[in-house]
Computed example of a mutant assay.
Amino acid sequence: MPTVLRWGPYRAFFYSNEGNEPPHVHVRSGDSEAKFWLHDLSVAVNAGFPTHEIGAIIRHLRTQRDFLEGQWHEHFRN
């Protein structure tokens, strides 16, 4: 489960057994976790983040999308 990005209380990471899915990133803070598809930064799963916080996370991920996609392809070698 490599961490690819940290900011504030957030940690963005991949689960190493999910390489067969489209590129995505998980974000965790405290007991909350969400999964975001990288192609459009839509929310695949949200477990605990309030809506306003999801919006702030998406805004930050948008600024890092190219980096995150590069990290995905490097990690999963695809």
Rank of each mutant, 00 (worst) to 15 (best):
D31R: 12
R59S: 06
N20P: 13
L38E: 00
L38M: 05
N46I: 01
A56N: 05
S16T: 11
Y15E: 06
S32P: 09
F13R: 01
F67E: 14
A56M: 07
F76D: 08
E74Q: 13
N46M: 05
A12H: 00
D66M: 13
Q71P: 07
N17T: 13
F36E: 02
A56H: 06
S29T: 07
T63E: 11
H24A: 12
S42G: 06
F36T: 00
A12S: 02
T51K: 15
H26L: 02
L38K: 00
Q71I: 09
G8W: 07
S16A: 14
G55V: 12
N78L: 14
P50H: 13
S32Y: 07
G70C: 12
T63M: 07
F13H: 03
P22L: 15
G19W: 12
A47M: 13
D40F: 00
A44M: 13
G30S: 09
W7D: 09
T63F: 03
E18K: 06
F67M: 10
H60Q: 15
H52T: 15
V45I: 13
N46R: 06
R77V: 11
W7P: 05
W72E: 02
E53G: 11
F14S: 01
Y10A: 00
E53H: 09
D40P: 00
F67C: 12
F49S: 04
T3M: 06
Q64T: 10
S42R: 05
D40S: 03
D31K: 14
V43Q: 03
S29V: 03
P22G: 14
D66W: 06
H73G: 05
F76I: 08
Y10H: 03
H26Y: 05
I54P: 01
G30C: 08
R65Q: 13
H75P: 04
H52Q: 15
L41M: 03
R11A: 09
R28V: 07
E33T: 00
W7T: 08
P9Y: 03
R11W: 07
F76Q: 10
V25N: 04
H26M: 02
A34F: 02
T3C: 05
V45K: 10
G70K: 11
G30F: 05
L38Y: 02
R62T: 09
G55H: 10
L38F: 04
G70E: 14
L68A: 02
H60E: 12
H26C: 04
G70Y: 11
N78P: 09
D66Y: 10
K35R: 10
N20C: 11
V27T: 02
N17V: 09
T63L: 09
T51G: 14
V43I: 08
H75E: 08
A12E: 00
D66A: 14
K35V: 09
R65D: 05
A34C: 11
V27R: 01
V43Y: 03
L41N: 03
F13I: 02
A34P: 04
G19Y: 09
H73P: 03
P9E: 07
R6T: 15
H52V: 15
R28A: 10
N46T: 04
E69L: 10
D40I: 04
I58S: 02
A34R: 01
K35G: 07
W37E: 08
W72G: 00
K35S: 10
